[in-house]
Amino acid sequence: MATAVAMGKTPARGLAIRQILLYVGLILFGVLTLSPFILSILGAFKSTVEIGAYPPTFLPQVWHPDNFIQVWKLFPLFPRWFLNSLGLSVTVMVLNVLFCAMAGYAFSRLEFPGRNILFLAVLATLMIPLQVTMVPKFIMLARLHLVNTYPAVILPNVSTAAGIFLMTQFMKAIPKELEEAARIDGAGKFTTFWRVILPLSVPAMTALAIFSFQGQWNDFLWPLIVLTSPHLWTLPLGLAGFSTEYVSNTNWVLVGSIFTTIPMAILVFVFQRYIVKSVATTGGK
């Protein structure tokens, strides 16, 4: 917008042409962005024969909405995977937000020996990639007999360095006076945290919640390592397995892909505003 103002000097017609060109560019890019989705959705309605047709057809010659029912019926694990994904994502989201907020509170508002060192230690883990820790993490969980259980997926993800950093930074900006007022009223640290700090931190918590949820929903590598029984799998894991089983039925694989994507797409539409804001503050991770 700022630049649009800056261009106020340009004659009106030049401005209009420029605007049209910009929109054309944006629409073209939009088409490019959406085309894989559109082709997939159309492909999901094609027959097994037509999906392998050469050259490919754009619209299905015969529409097969029954593909959706077929996949759901032939593969009763799909609803199960959906629930697993949902349950794990919600659990990780709630616990991660809570634990990161707690840690953020301690780091931003409390004084204790070792605070700086601990905070630096947390930050340092941002630089440790998953590939270094995935093998020992698996072995530790195996020793604890937690491999192939939900906690194996949940535990390592419920206090993330990025989340703690975000909460700490946010809470530092909350005026001290509010906290003081609560203290004068005789509230302890826990009450202050729960009644004063948490309600004020809702924006940061929302951002963190959305990313925790999305991250868990789409996570593949870690569940792949620790979940061995199909009834515990999440949607991406199940879908990957499904696609190797039904190599000959690309149309079904596309149906499964749509099942996996729709919940996130709905979430994005509902929480659009928050998501944009939180991507902007956190860089999308």
């Binding site: 072995i139 491999v147 192939n148």
Partner: peptide
């Protein structure tokens, strides 16, 4: 299967 064997499960 091997992962489960390693975990004793």
């Amino acid at each position: 299967l091997k992962a489960q064997m390693a975990a004793g499960t």
